[in-house]
Design a protein around this nucleic acid. Structure first.
Lengths: 218, 218
DNA sequence: ACCTGAACACCGTTCAAGT
DNA sequence: ACCTGAACACCGTTCAAGT
C-alpha cells in the first residue's frame, strides 16, 4: 500500500484505533507514529501535542455518534428521541470501552458542557429537539442535566466491568480467604456478579423518562 | 521537625495531599519523594510502584469515609442510611475533586465491586445495613447497583465542573463566535451555566430512594 | 532494615536540518 | 510544506552500594 501524505484525520483515526486496541495509557507519540509508519515528531505537524490529540479523539468519537443509525431516523416523540440518544451512546461505550472513560474524565470545553454529551453540536441538537417536542427552556435544560448524569454513571459502570473482564490475570485479585471477614458479602457474591447490565440500563432509562415527564408536567 | 523513618502510611497520606494540591497527573515518584524529604527510590520500599500507590490512595480515601460523622451515627431507617452514605460520598468528592475521578476510573478489585462504593468493607456494610432494615438479598443487591450508578454520574459531573473552575485560563476556551452556529444553545447558555448542583443532587437522590422503595415493594 | 546513587529504557517536546 | 535526527529534560524502575 502506497504511503499517502499524513493528514490530521489519519492521526486522529489512528489514535482511536490504537486506543481501542491497546488502551489510552500505552498510547505514546512514538508508538502511534510507528503504527502510522512515521516518526513521532511528524505528528506534531497535525496536533499540538498528546493532550490535544486525546481531546481530538474524544471529540471525534462523540461527533461520529451523529452517524449512528439510531440518530439518522426521525423520532416520533421526545421519549423515542431520548431513547435513541441513550442507546446510541450505549453502543459507543460498548464499541470503545477504552475511550469512554476519556469522554468522562477529560475536562469539558465549558463548565456547562456535561459528559458524555459534551460537544456544542450535541447539546444544541438535544435542546432543540426537546423544544421542538414542546419543552420549555427550563424543562429542556433540566432534561439535559438529568440525562447526562444518568448516562455517565450507567455507562461508566458498564465499561468498568468490561475493562476488568479484559485483563483476566487481575480478574480474581481477591483471594478466597479475604471474603471471610465479610459474611454478608460472601453470601451475596453470586447475586452481585450476575450481569443484567442491559436490563439495568433499560430500567434506569425508563425511570429517567418518567422523571423527565414529571419535569415537563410539574 | 525531626524526620521520622518513613512509613507506608506517610507515603499514602503524602500522595493524597500531593494530588489534592497538584492533581494526579503531576504526581511523580521523584516529586512525591522530594515533598516527603526523601529520594524517589525510597518510596519503593513501601509501595510496589506508581500504579499500586494510586490504588492505595483510592482505597485510603474510600475507607476514611467510615469515619465521616454522617456514618458514625446510627440511622433510623433505610432511607436515612442511604441518604447518609450518599452525602458522605458527596462530601468526599467535594473535598478531593482531584481524587474522585481516580475512584471512578481505576479498575475495581472485582467486576462486581462498583465505584464509587468499591471496597469489600463498604459493600458488605451496605448490604448488611439494608438487610437489617428488612431488604431481601435481591432487593439489597439491586439497591446497591442503583445507588452506585446514581452516585458515580452525579458526583463525577460535580467535580468535572469544579475542575474547570480551577483552571481559569481554559474557562472560556469557547470563543464567542463559535456559538453563532448554534442559536438554540446560545439562547440557553445562561440557563445551562446556572449551578444548582446541590438541589440536583438532592432531587436525584429522592428519586433514587423512590426507586429503591419500588424495588422493595414490587 | 532502610535509604541513596548511578544507570537503563523509555517519555513528550524543541529545534535545526533535510527533501 | 512536510518529515527526520539529534538533543533536552524529564519519567518509572532496577540494582548494587552504603549506613
Amino acid at each position: 500500500m502506497a504511503r499517502q501524505r499524513l493528514s490530521r484525520d489519519d492521526v486522529i483515526r489512528g489514535a482511536v484505533a490504537y486506543i481501542d486496541e491497546h488502551g489510552a495509557q500505552s498510547l505514546t507519540m512514538r508508538r502511534l507514529g510507528a503504527s502510522l509508519g512515521v516518526e513521532a515528531m511528524a505528528l506534531y505537524r497535525h496536533v499540538a501535542g498528546r493532550d490535544a490529540l486525546l481531546a481530538a479523539v474524544v471529540h471525534q468519537v462523540i461527533d461520529d455518534l451523529f452517524n449512528d443509525s439510531l440518530m439518522t431516523e426521525e423520532p416520533n416523540s421526545w421519549e423515542e428521541y431520548v431513547q435513541h440518544v441513550a442507546n446510541a451512546l450505549r453502543n459507543l461505550a460498548l464499541d470503545h470501552p477504552q475511550i469512554f472513560p476519556l469522554i468522562a474524565a477529560h475536562p469539558p470545553e465549558a463548565p456547562w458542557l456535561r459528559p458524555p454529551l459534551r460537544s456544542l453540536r450535541w447539546v444544541d441538537h438535544f435542546l432543540r429537539s426537546l423544544r421542538d417536542f414542546g419543552f420549555s427552556d427550563s424543562a429542556a435544560v433540566d432534561a439535559y442535566k438529568a440525562l447526562t448524569s444518568f448516562l455517565l454513571g450507567a455507562l461508566l459502570l458498564q465499561v468498568a466491568a468490561v475493562g476488568v473482564a479484559v485483563s483476566p490475570e487481575e480478574a480474581s485479585m481477591i483471594e478466597d480467604g479475604s471474603l471471610d471477614q465479610y459474611p454478608t458479602l460472601k453470601g451475596l457474591q453470586g447475586k452481585l456478579a450476575e450481569d443484567h447490565s442491559k436490563r439495568e440500563f433499560d430500567d434506569g432509562l425508563d425511570d429517567l423518562i418518567e422523571r423527565i415527564r414529571s419535569i415537563l408536567h410539574p
